[in-house]
Amino acid sequence: MTNSFKTLAAFFDQFNDEVQGRDLGEPPEEIRAKLRLLARGGLPATEHQELFVQLNQSPEWVTVLAREMKGLRQAPQDRTNQLEQ
């Protein structure tokens, strides 16, 4: 399943710059704040749908969300490392 979606997305994305809206770049601060909340599980469920629609229109914002989520995952380890040092 992993490779399948990656294959499909790579194939699709090469044709679809205009559909995917890549030129939008970084999200505005309002969206960025919502992404931070979403990553932490703190965005009200009633706001999920609208944000997911926006993320689909600008898939590069999913990268921002992924960064936020990875940051959360790394944070406890970073703290442990700092304590060990």
């Binding site: 999920h48 749908q49 997911f52 629609v53 969300l65 989520m69 990875k70």
Partner: peptide
């Protein structure tokens, strides 16, 4: 495919979460 599911697929299979 639902927008939420598309985001989930991208997060898991493209970004490795």
């Amino acid at each position: 495919c639902g927008p939420r599911e598309m985001v989930m697929l991208r997060l898991v299979f493209l970004h490795g979460l």
